[in-house]
Design a protein around this nucleic acid. Structure first.
Lengths: 198, 198
DNA sequence: TGTACATCAGTGAACGCGCGTTCACTGATGTAC
DNA sequence: TGTACATCAGTGAACGCGCGTTCACTGATGTAC
């Protein structure tokens, strides 16, 4: 072969990684195949030796985005449990940088209009997130209850980040995020410890 | 004039109304000017005697969507307070019919990528929603606290509906909605009364 | 060791298509005389 | 009352453009002999 072993695989991975960030930042429909390939240092024609269609890349990007999100979630939970996850999720930095942030917060509405096949990996990831969070939730409620609580926290945070992003007024946006932290901690059943003078 | 008085105004309104529904259903970018005008019983060329650009329609649709949402919210609050709002928001019917549902749940992520001018009306609506909900919240906390609670409920419900829409598995989706109700009621400080055998 | 050929990731021109937008036009009606 | 003209909401062909996708090609390298 004219390229070293594993070259194609690494290019493939680079395209998917670029897609994850670009989709989150600009929305799936607003990212063209040509843009994407250029960002990955390639020309658009080569795309189809990696994917059968753009939709196939959407699926791959959702799967990859999920894997990354789960890794980061693991880290947060080990660092400081559910509270650490919540406090890192509802930050101005996450609001302002969707490209490195949560796929669900950036793309769930758009994803809902894509074929079932593309939503499959997303659904699995959401399930894994709830399981992982449930493990780290305080209290001795049954597993099933804890999973529901995890969904409630996640849903609440997704909506909060989206509101904070959509709103026009920076002060209001900051307020929404802060209220979101208190709320998410309350749903989780975690006593809010004061870390800042308000 | 060749059209009765008020004809243009009613056409204008019809275009905006069609846009509100279509945008919510398919996303702003996926609705073409020609589609929209056809749905309103017109041809695409006439669009520009009503709006300077598609973006101007986006703004108008956001404003109109907000007015409608506020009207419905008023009705719900009068019917049965915050609990009535929550229970009607987190339904399978709302999940399955974004076209007649909440603009924020359908479009906030996409809207965040549109110019400030288009997000202005949305921001105002969100402010009015929180004020209206705050009025109907139980307890004697100060107004400012109640407004924050209102944002928390709204954010939580937006995210929950979006998760329920994006997820691939109908059973999981129903579960997310139901958990969302319990959660939103808890944030609101409302004792959940059992209305259904689970 | 040297030459001919096969491989295949990536190139870039070209495709049909739908988009937002423009513009010369239509034709039903109101107004002026 | 009858005729000529002005109005203007809506029409539909045309524009340049970017999209997803196709395809004949390139050219560096591995393999066969």
């Amino acid at each position: 072969m004219r390229y070293e072993k594993g070259h194609k695989e690494s290019t493939h991975r680079r395209i998917v990684e670029t897609a994850v960030a670009q989709f989150r930042k600009n929305g799936i429909d607003n990212v063209g195949v040509a843009d994407l390939m250029a960002e990955a240092g390639l020309t658009h024609g080569g795309f189809y030796s990696h994917f059968q269609s753009k939709e196939e890349l959407v699926k791959a990007a959702m799967d990859e985005g999920g894997v990354r999100s789960l890794q980061r979630l693991q880290t947060r939970l080990q660092e400081g449990g559910v509270e650490c996850w919540i406090r890192n999720y509802l930050t101005a930095s996450h609001r302002d940088h969707p490209e490195t942030g949560c796929t669900a917060a950036a793309l769930s509405a758009e994803l809902a209009r894509h074929p079932k096949s593309s939503r499959n990996g997303f659904t699995e990831t959401v399930g894994k997130i709830s399981a992982l969070v449930a493990e780290h939730l305080p209290g001795d409620k049954p597993e099933a209850e804890k999973r529901k609580t995890a969904f409630a926290i996640f849903g609440s945070m997704i909506g909060t980040v989206q509101l904070a992003r959509a709103v026009d007024d920076p002060t209001l946006s900051d307020q929404i995020l802060e209220t979101g932290i208190t709320t998410a901690l309350a749903i989780a059943g975690i006593e809010a410890r004061k870390t800042q003078v308000s």
